[in-house]
Amino acid sequence: MEQAAVVLASLFVDALQFIPDHAALLLQKAAETAELAFTALGIAILIALPIGLWLGHRHRGLLLALGASSIGRALPSIALIGIFIAWLGVGFWNNTVALVILGIPPILTNAYFAVEGVDSDVVEAARGMGLSERQILTGVELPLGLPLLLAGVRIAAVFVIATATIAGIAGGGGLGEIMSNLTVYNESGVLAAALCVAAMALATAFLLSLVQRAASRRMAPRA
């Protein structure tokens, strides 16, 4: 028992040692994964956010919003990325397309329900005050729905970072390449890469929660 604990501790110590020892390699691989993940996340937001917000505002397309979320959940990301790579070949933009597809559902669904769920009395009051539909969406519904909307972006971000890593296992480079290469990098390298991915996702989620907090504070007096 004690011996097992020692082995366990030494594995993690080795992994932590690996990080400074191979800082340049890890940074380069992490940058590859981050570039892929954030490009895809950005495109997914640009596509999904306007559609979700507008449908939610019009209270239309419930089936699309629900369907997007259930399909998004059911799709095994690793099979999807594999199919994309088998179909289009390995490449930055090919992988980006697959990640964008996986990132869209949570953003679209949450944007839809964030706006759709705003109290209809509030929206009616805004309409009665003479606000245009656009003003209602950006000035009333968006601020009120912001926490839910950003929660969707956060889920998509973690998901896309995780899947960008998997793309590496299928030959897409980045931290996944280290993870799938036990013979070259040993346990310490695989664990170190896993720690890097976890840190990247947690840091992104933390930043988004800061944005969420700042936004809701700024919006509070108006809402």
């Binding site: 995780a162 890593t165 896993a194 720690l195 976890a198 996702a201 989620a205």
Partner: peptide, 11 residues
């Protein structure tokens, strides 16, 4: 939930 599954499995 913010830790990607692939990392959690490996860790």
């Amino acid at each position: 939930y913010c830790i990607p599954s692939i990392a959690l499995f490996l860790l």
